[in-house]
Amino acid sequence: MTGADVLTTRALGRALLARQHLLTRATVTAADMVRHLGGLQAQAAPQPPYLGLLARLDGFAPEELTGLIEQRRVVRIALQRGTIHLVTADDCLTLRPLVQPVLDQGLRGAYGKRLAGLDLDALAGEARALVEEEPRTFQQLGPQLAASRPGRDPAALAQAARCLLPLVQVPPRGLWGRGGAAAHTTAEHWLGRPLDPAPSLDGLALRYLAAFGPATVADLQKWCGLTRLGPVLKRLAPGLVTFRDEHGRLLYDLPDAPRPDPSVPAPVRLVAPFDNLVLSHADRSRVLPEEYRLRLMTQNGLVPGILLVDGLVAGDWQLVEGGRGEARAVVIHPYAALRRADRQAAETEAERVLAFAGGGGAVRFGEPV
């Protein structure tokens, strides 16, 4: 193997930023960006998908994504890693069957004992009828399912329905400036189309590489939550290129995907909370320095907004909506002292967030700790 076959951590970081449109913002539609990214993390409503697109798109306004949600062109549904993602309607119907094993495993781990001996097919049929009659929250659905199943835990029954059925969250849930309780119906009912009867794991892997590569098998598995995907990438290998990282691990990639020179400058960016930029690799060091991993990714599973400096996590941030008598603010917490130019760039990005959120407000910096 020659030195040219090895991609440094910095080179991997620049490739990821290029594919995530965090080196240069794109001018494509919001729908096209959602599709390219394979969806955006949306478990915290409503900010993350909107802020994720804002970081990547020029000229993006909240009304564009709100319209896509209301027009049923994008939906919120449990997908990769069993977490809520905002995806295009087409991806919803294709990806949801592929990640069924992830949801099955999560249900067994959290509620298996409470569901033992239950007729899951009958439960799914009853739940489908209820949510297709009208969208329902889990707080409504669970007791309704428990009414004919005395002694069963309503929360476990609702979560079983979430696993067994492709449940989408309907608006106003997830709408910027509005929001609402997470009420669900089936994807088939909401979109008027069936799930993809023959979804492709090959297609899933290629989509991942386009947005997150170069990557190892472990990286792909971390992103989607599935296991045993090595044979998929091996099958695709004749049409791919391969490299090694600095630890000797095998990386797969698309031949024509961008792999910028590691010296390419990376602008300061404010990336959304829970962004897949930092959640989609087994080895996150391409963007997340090890010394900051525990600060950014807390034990309770919360991931704040991310301050990127020179392509690496350098702090976190939060958009704080002002309460009574208080102004809206973007609060930035750098993990180390920032150079003047980087601080100014972060302030400019924060002002862009404030303008997106409706104008006005303040930018505040916390002291490095």
Rank of each mutant, 00 (worst) to 15 (best):
L37G: 02
A211N: 06
Q41F: 02
G112K: 03
L229R: 07
R73G: 00
G180T: 08
R96V: 03
P97S: 05
F365K: 07
L107Q: 10
R72G: 01
L17M: 14
G315P: 03
R228Y: 12
V264L: 12
L93S: 01
A282Q: 09
L229F: 13
W317K: 09
L354Y: 07
R249Y: 00
D119V: 03
V75K: 04
R81L: 02
A155E: 14
V28D: 13
L175I: 11
A122E: 15
L86H: 01
A337R: 15
T88S: 10
A160K: 07
E291A: 12
L17E: 03
L98I: 04
L98Y: 05
P97H: 04
R259Y: 12
A156P: 06
V168T: 08
A350Y: 14
G3M: 12
A122I: 10
E290I: 08
D90P: 03
E132D: 15
L141H: 08
G125E: 13
A45W: 02
P49H: 01
V363Q: 05
R72Q: 07
E326S: 13
T29R: 04
L86V: 01
L37T: 06
D310K: 11
A187P: 08
G311E: 06
E291N: 00
G151T: 07
P46V: 02
V309H: 00
P238Q: 13
L302F: 12
W223P: 06
R96G: 02
P238Y: 09
V363E: 05
L338K: 13
L16C: 10
Q221L: 05
A116P: 04
L308M: 12
R173H: 15
D153L: 09
G301A: 12
G305Q: 00
L12P: 09
P62D: 03
L204Q: 10
G59P: 00
L206K: 07
A218W: 02
V131Y: 02
V34F: 01
L296W: 00
I332T: 06
A346M: 11
D58Q: 14
G52M: 02
A155R: 15
D119W: 01
L277C: 03
L164A: 11
V34E: 01
H21C: 04
V74G: 03
R152D: 00
L308T: 00
L54S: 02
L229H: 11
H184Y: 15
A350Q: 06
E134H: 13
L302Y: 01
M33D: 10
R173E: 14
G67S: 04
P46Q: 05
P260N: 03
A147E: 15
Q344D: 15
G177V: 05
A350S: 09
A146T: 00
G203A: 06
V99W: 04
D121K: 13
D104T: 14
D219M: 11
P267I: 01
A147R: 12
Q47D: 14
T88D: 00
L141D: 09
L23I: 14
A45H: 07
S285E: 10
G13C: 07
G179H: 04
Y111P: 06
L23G: 06
P255M: 02
A146M: 08
A18I: 09
Y208G: 06
A158K: 05
L23Y: 07
R19Y: 06
L209F: 10
E70V: 14
L270F: 11
L204Y: 10
R149A: 02
